[in-house]
Write a protein that binds this DNA or RNA. Sequence first.
DNA 1: AGTCTATTGTAGCCTATGCAACAATCATGA
DNA 2: TCATGATTGTTGCATAGGCTACAATAGACT
Lengths: 151, 151
Amino acid sequence: MRNTGPEDDSYIGYMLSDVARLIRTIFDRRVRDIGLTRAQWLVLTRVYRRPGVSQTELAEMLEIDRASAGRMIDRMERNGWVERRPDRTDRRINRLHLTDEARKVHAAMWAIAESTVDDALSPLSATEREQYAELTAKVKGRLQNLAGAVP
Amino acid sequence: MRNTGPEDDSYIGYMLSDVARLIRTIFDRRVRDIGLTRAQWLVLTRVYRRPGVSQTELAEMLEIDRASAGRMIDRMERNGWVERRPDRTDRRINRLHLTDEARKVHAAMWAIAESTVDDALSPLSATEREQYAELTAKVKGRLQNLAGAVP
DNA sequence: AGTCTATTGTAGCCTATGCAACAATCATGA
DNA sequence: TCATGATTGTTGCATAGGCTACAATAGACT
């Protein structure tokens, strides 16, 4: 790492955020064709990965306010994509589940996600992809420690 | 790349966005101590890297609406961090410049950014960092092509 | 049981953002 | 020259987000 001034476009810190931003932008553009906004597909993936998640847990996963998450769920419930079901034992909690319609949309979205990531990694060889995944996993693990600890 | 279903937390697509999100979150937390919000430090870095940028260009770099950018600049101008200067030849255009005060804040912010990135990459050896930077650069280049082309 | 504290989801308020419409300005071409 | 279209920045409107306060509920402790 030779030059690490704020002017160097190849600074790894910039490149990491650029890669994530570009993937997100390209994915947003492709997924808009099936009628999804970014906020909506974020909710969709989280509830898909964790059915029965509570509203507060969803808000934490998305790093947004509980109130904002509640209003988002209002809208997606009105659109028939997500259901609130009462918790068996705790009457304060709403458990969230995708509708059949939403699961179909998720399948289409996932196909787009995979092809977008494949496109992004296309300049890497199979070996390089493995390396890239390993290095990224190491960095992610370190960041999770940092995020978990008190700043 | 064995398992690429939506349930696999080690899917490279997830990990890439996780790394960027975690860095941003940790950096946000550290930089709040010097009185900066995310929207503000984003403007700060962009105008620092490109002094004399126009409002429309800034909006494009930040991927936000022209109107939103204009109002953000209103606030930062009121706070004495950025100046609007008229373009020499085109009276429609405002050229943006940082104040001395803002440049001081940027220096402090950059120190925090560097230490955050260093912390994130701390589990990698020097060689691995080089590899990681190279691979990231390749992916970024590919994504810029994709973003530039018509979807 | 009763009391106190913590947690969940929601409503109100203010701010921030995107979209559309607009005036001012520039560029192009008859 | 001047008429037409494009671009820049701003304003109004509707929407989405964060913060605070609140009712309902759960849990712990006496």
